[in-house]
């Protein structure tokens, strides 16, 4: 492995590969040994960074929540409450029901996704190189065999997990608000309907097909939008990192632009979650 030639494409490939863990007949295996392990592979870098960032989010907000009082807030308190109020306002404007879940869900998505996206601004070689060094010195691994992808949202598993969670909630809210019958009726009796019973029998499969596609498209678009934006951004960072000294101004420009992207993507994911759940719980068909 050590003799493997480092080309640009292998460098990029290395950056875009997750650290994997899987169990084989010989016990736990890592990285290249897991190439054929199929579904039961764990991306330990994605899991570690995302859960770590999630815990940081909860720790920061929990410490602000503990200090929350009706008195004059401090600056840290103000900052946290600004985020909370921003999310709360968006939820109130969009979701016209009563739910104790939507607002905390939106806050978690917004801040968590933002923090995960924020990892994209750390120069692309820092942490992988550090991980390679640690792996080489502490564990005697080949540094080319140490993978470290630090932006969890560039892993489709991460964004798909968020989208799947939102999708399950959408179905849950639909059934809770409209009943199973109402949910099925929503999938089958629209958008085409006729008074003629025989005609309806023909239209129901069409409706089911259309509505199912419309329903399933929502989590797909959620997952792929976030993944696509961040993956592309990350790829461009890696490419910029490979152009020598010119990377300094280029990296700066792309990073400044990316500040907008990471906030925007976090916001879009949050807003669409609220909108989808609002549509799921509104009985407006």
């Amino acid at each position: 492995m050590a003799a493997e030639e480092v080309t640009l494409s292998s460098h990029i490939q290395h950056h875009l590969t997750n650290a994997k863990m899987c169990s084989t007949d010989a016990g736990l295996a890592f990285n290249k040994a897991c190439t054929d392990s199929g579904f039961w592979t764990w991306h330990i870098d994605t899991l570690a960074w995302s859960i770590g960032l999630g815990l940081i989010f909860l720790w920061i907000f929990r410490s602000a929540a503990k200090k929350a009082s009706t008195g004059v807030p401090g600056k840290f308190q103000c900052f946290i409450e600004m985020i909370v109020e921003f999310v709360g306002d968006n939820v109130r404007d969009t979701y016209h029901g009563k739910s104790a879940l939507i607002a905390p869900l939106a806050l978690t998505i917004f801040v968590w996704v933002f923090l995960m996206n924020l990892m994209d601004l750390i120069p692309v070689d820092f942490l992988p190189a550090l991980a390679g060094f640690v792996g080489e010195t502490a564990f005697g691994m080949d540094s080319h065999d140490v993978y470290m992808k630090i932006v969890p949202t560039t892993d489709i598993n991460m964004t798909a997990a968020l989208a799947l969670g939102v999708f399950l909630l959408m179905i849950g809210y639909s059934i809770k608000m409209k009943g199973i019958g109402g949910f099925i009726a929503e999938l089958t009796l629209h958008p085409f309907s006729t008074k003629n019973k025989l005609g309806m029998l023909f239209l129901i499969p069409c409706n089911l097909l259309l509505e199912t596609i419309a329903l399933v498209a929502k989590p797909f678009s959620l997952a792929l939008r976030l993944f696509g934006n961040l993956y592309a951004g990350e790829l461009i960072f890696i490419l910029i990192g490979a152009v020598g000294l010119m990377q300094l101004p280029l990296h700066f420009i792309w990073a400044v632009f990316h500040i907008l992207v990471i906030v925007l993507q976090a916001f879009v994911f949050m807003m669409l979650t609220i909108v989808y759940l609002s549509m799921a719980s509104a009985d407006n068909h």
């Binding site: 039961w40 592979t41 994605t46 899991l47 503990k66 909370v84 607002a103 978690t108 997990a161 799947l164």
Partner: peptide, 29 residues
């Protein structure tokens, strides 16, 4: 490829949202 990571992240997501719903959002709001 989609892997078991998805399940791990889904569980983490659910736990984070529940924690946020119970201990973060109500006191702040």
């Amino acid at each position: 490829n989609l892997t078991a990571t998805l399940l791990g992240e889904l569980i983490a997501f659910v736990v984070f949202v529940l924690f946020c719903m119970k201990y973060v959002w109500p006191p702040l709001n």
